[in-house]
Amino acid sequence: MTNLIELLRDNPLVAVIVGAEVAFWVFIALGLSARYLLLKKKLGAALLICVPLIDVVMLVATVIDLRSGGSADITHGLAATYLGFSVAFGHSMIRWADVRFAHRFAGGPAPVKPPKYGAEKVKREWREWLKALLAWAIACGIMGILVAIFGMNEQTRVFWEWPWGWIPRLTIVLGIWFVVGPLWVLLSPPRQPATSER
């Protein structure tokens, strides 16, 4: 616990990232509670609209930290990656929570289980990978902008240096996701649901 407190004290951007993740789920919980428990749809919508503002705070905090003389490190790459995945997957995560909240508290339909085979499974894998591609593009774009502002130097090496910079690592992860996701499902033999013998 002491080490965590020291880490947050010594690197405020880590505290911002942790706070952003907590705030993401808190605003979702508050928004859905207002919508379904208090029956205040406008209040619920206003609280859910605050979720993207968390990303803006993260971006501003990252730029301020670098402009105030902070050296780019793993934390800034993590912040850019968080922003990319938050923008790309945030809406679907809110929708995921909304369906379950509505089912639990407002008599909504039960959540639909993801498909395990067939064309729908292929379609889902492509959709998720395309979201990952969007997250990659946003994260790399943010890091590219930071490199353009501060130059390709020792300060920004953590973003672009091969093979351990953030951009190369994210590219490798995206490639692996493609192989084990849509490509694997596309090339796998089609499966049919098991039928029980009578």
Rank of each mutant, 00 (worst) to 15 (best):
M1R: 10
L7K: 09
L7P: 03
R9E: 11
N11I: 05
L13E: 01
V14W: 02
E21W: 05
V26S: 08
I28N: 09
L30I: 10
G31N: 06
G31H: 03
S33Q: 10
A34G: 08
A34I: 07
L37K: 14
L38A: 14
L38R: 15
L38P: 04
L38V: 15
K40F: 07
L43F: 05
V56Q: 09
V56C: 07
V60L: 15
I64P: 01
R67A: 11
R67V: 05
R67L: 08
G70I: 02
G70F: 00
S71C: 02
A72H: 01
I74D: 03
T75A: 08
T75K: 02
H76W: 02
G77V: 07
A79V: 09
A79W: 00
T81H: 00
G84H: 02
G84T: 08
F85I: 07
S86E: 02
F89R: 03
H91T: 08
I94E: 01
A97K: 05
D98M: 04
F101W: 06
H103V: 04
A110Y: 06
K113Q: 11
P115V: 12
K116F: 05
A119S: 14
A119G: 04
E120S: 15
V122A: 05
E125M: 14
E125V: 10
R127S: 15
E128C: 08
A132W: 00
L133R: 02
L133K: 04
L134F: 11
L134A: 11
L134K: 02
A137L: 15
I138N: 00
I138A: 01
I142C: 09
G144M: 05
G144L: 09
L146R: 00
V147G: 00
N153A: 10
R157D: 10
R157F: 06
V158R: 00
W164L: 11
G165N: 05
I167G: 01
I167D: 00
P168G: 13
I172T: 13
V173S: 13
V173H: 07
G175K: 06
W177H: 13
V180D: 08
P182A: 11
L183A: 12
L186D: 07
L186W: 12
L186S: 10
P189K: 13
P189N: 10
P190A: 10
R191N: 05
Q192M: 10
P193F: 06
A194T: 06
A194H: 05
S196H: 06
S196K: 10
E197I: 14
E197S: 08
